[in-house]
Simulated assay, not measured.
Amino acid sequence: MKFDSFADFIDMGGYGFFVWLAYGVTFGCLGILILHSLSQKKKVLTEIAKKMTREDRLKESRGKKS
């Protein structure tokens, strides 16, 4: 489909609102998904670090008792 001007491109033959809304919703959802995934990754890595520290402290305390 060829557009004569940039305004025609934005209008998309009268369906511009729906086309651009679909793009907006799609990229908005992808952005939210990426941010949520990064947040969850940070939480998981923090929990793993805490667990490793806790296990190291337990090993040290068991070594001192023997």
Results as ranks from 00 to 15, higher is better:
36 H>Y: 13
22 A>H: 09
2 K>Q: 10
62 R>N: 14
63 G>L: 15
2 K>R: 11
39 S>H: 10
36 H>E: 14
48 I>S: 00
51 K>M: 12
13 G>R: 03
44 V>M: 03
62 R>D: 12
51 K>C: 10
31 G>E: 00
63 G>W: 15
9 F>I: 02
62 R>P: 08
53 T>H: 12
16 G>R: 00
23 Y>G: 00
4 D>P: 10
2 K>M: 11
24 G>D: 06
36 H>V: 14
6 F>T: 04
23 Y>W: 09
45 L>Q: 15
9 F>D: 08
32 I>M: 01
21 L>A: 10
49 A>F: 13
10 I>P: 05
24 G>E: 08
46 T>L: 12
17 F>W: 05
18 F>A: 13
46 T>M: 15
4 D>N: 08
25 V>T: 05
46 T>R: 12
58 L>A: 15
28 G>Q: 03
31 G>I: 01
11 D>V: 04
2 K>P: 07
41 K>R: 06
13 G>H: 03
58 L>S: 14
24 G>S: 09
56 D>H: 11
51 K>G: 04
37 S>Y: 07
13 G>P: 01
13 G>T: 01
42 K>M: 09
28 G>Y: 04
50 K>L: 14
19 V>Q: 02
63 G>P: 13
40 Q>A: 09
2 K>F: 10
27 F>M: 00
18 F>C: 06
4 D>K: 09
7 A>L: 07
15 Y>A: 11
57 R>S: 09
59 K>Q: 05
41 K>A: 09
41 K>N: 12
61 S>E: 15
58 L>P: 06
22 A>F: 12
7 A>N: 06
9 F>K: 03
40 Q>R: 07
19 V>Y: 01
27 F>E: 05
32 I>V: 05
34 I>D: 06
7 A>D: 07
8 D>M: 02
36 H>S: 12
20 W>F: 02
58 L>D: 15
3 F>D: 01
62 R>K: 15
65 K>M: 15
32 I>N: 01
60 E>M: 13
51 K>P: 03
47 E>C: 06
60 E>P: 04
2 K>H: 13
20 W>H: 01
10 I>W: 06
47 E>V: 08
22 A>E: 02
31 G>D: 02
60 E>V: 08
48 I>R: 00
52 M>S: 02
35 L>M: 10
38 L>I: 09
37 S>I: 11
28 G>F: 06
18 F>V: 11
3 F>Y: 04
55 E>V: 11
6 F>D: 00
31 G>C: 01
29 C>I: 14
21 L>T: 12
44 V>L: 07
10 I>L: 02
10 I>R: 04
9 F>Y: 03
38 L>E: 11
28 G>D: 00
34 I>K: 01
30 L>S: 02
53 T>I: 13
24 G>P: 03
59 K>T: 11
6 F>N: 03
51 K>N: 07
43 K>P: 06
